[in-house]
């Protein structure tokens, strides 16, 4: 075959370019360890997501040291959970699956980007070096309101990150002269024990209790409130643990009034 000299040179240059590209990508995989989404996540029956050990309760889980796992369920047109908080400089593995059609899970402005295909679980491990706030969006068409599907990823400094949850159980009213109990339930999603202080303020009284919440466990703290010291009327209370706060109102009623039902709701919920 008769090939012009210039064309030969061009051919060689083209081959060098092609091999060079493949070399850089191979280096990217072997050197800095850029991993692809692959079949490690396994498969799942979309009908059984609610009973699945990982996706039954989607969210962030601490699995040890600086390793975290985040389970996300995508469906038209939202993510569960919508808000995700993870620590910086930690190894975070996302597991994402779809309840209905094909979606994507794409953290805007990063290479955290995967297709989410029903029946499949996408698994990817990432490390965010710096704290920051990122949008999450679906970049695969998933139906009429595809453009409304979004979420939020907050990467917080490692020392500010915890998986503490506070819920408070408190009555909304108590008869004057009786004692009642406000119960704080502190749960700790981290593997290590959490040493902290639970504080209750009610009216102008306050009390504090030091607790140690075991790793991956929870602890109940009971505060006894004496209505006689509060006196009749509405009393706002606040329970705090670290940065978490729960508030409500306790009404002390005169027994003879029989309660007028005007009490505000007691606090009951998650911080």
């Amino acid at each position: 075959m008769n090939i012009h000299t210039y064309e030969k040179a061009w051919l060689v240059a083209a081959m060098v370019l092609i091999v060079g590209f493949m070399a850089t990508i191979t280096y990217g995989a072997v050197g800095p360890g850029i991993a692809m989404i692959d079949d490690d996540g396994g498969t799942i029956d979309p009908a059984e997501i609610n009973d699945h050990e990982r996706f039954g309760e989607p969210g962030v889980e601490h699995v040890g040291d600086d390793e975290y796992e985040v389970a996300v369920v995508a469906q038209a047109w939202s993510y569960t959970p919508e808000q995700i908080e993870v620590p910086a400089d930690s190894e975070v593995t996302f597991y994402v699956t779809s309840r209905d059609v094909t979606h994507s899970f794409s953290v805007v402005g990063t290479n955290v980007n995967t297709m989410v295909i029903p029946g499949q679980i996408s698994e990817m491990t990432v490390r965010f070096d710096e704290p920051g706030e990122y949008g999450i969006l679906c970049n695969e068409y998933c139906g009429e309101y595809h453009h409304t599907m979004e979420g939020k990823l907050n990467v917080v400094p490692e020392d500010e990150f915890d998986l503490t949850e506070l819920s408070v159980d408190a009555p909304s009213e108590v008869e004057a002269g009786n004692e009642t109990t406000i119960t704080a339930n502190v749960s700790n999603g981290m593997q290590e024990d959490l040493e902290t202080t639970v504080a209750l303020e009610i009216g102008d009284q306050g009390s504090e209790r030091d607790v140690t919440v075991p790793g991956d466990g929870s602890e109940e703290v009971e505060f006894t409130v004496d209505s006689a010291e509060l006196g009749e009327g509405d009393h706002d209370w606040t329970v705090t643990v670290d940065d978490y706060e729960e508030t409500g109102t306790l009404t002390v009623v005169n027994a003879t009034d029989g309660g007028d039902g005007s009490a505000a709701s007691g606090g009951d919920g998650d911080a």
């Binding site: 498969t43 989410v116 499949q120």
Partner: peptide, 29 residues
């Protein structure tokens, strides 16, 4: 087109990439 798809092992994606890169050759020619 499926580099981001779960359920396909990385090796198969690599084969597809190699073939794709070699397709640059006819276009450069």
């Amino acid at each position: 087109h499926q580099y981001l798809d779960p359920g396909i092992a990385e090796g198969y994606k690599f084969i597809a990439m190699t073939n794709t890169m070699f397709l640059l050759l006819p276009s450069l020619l």
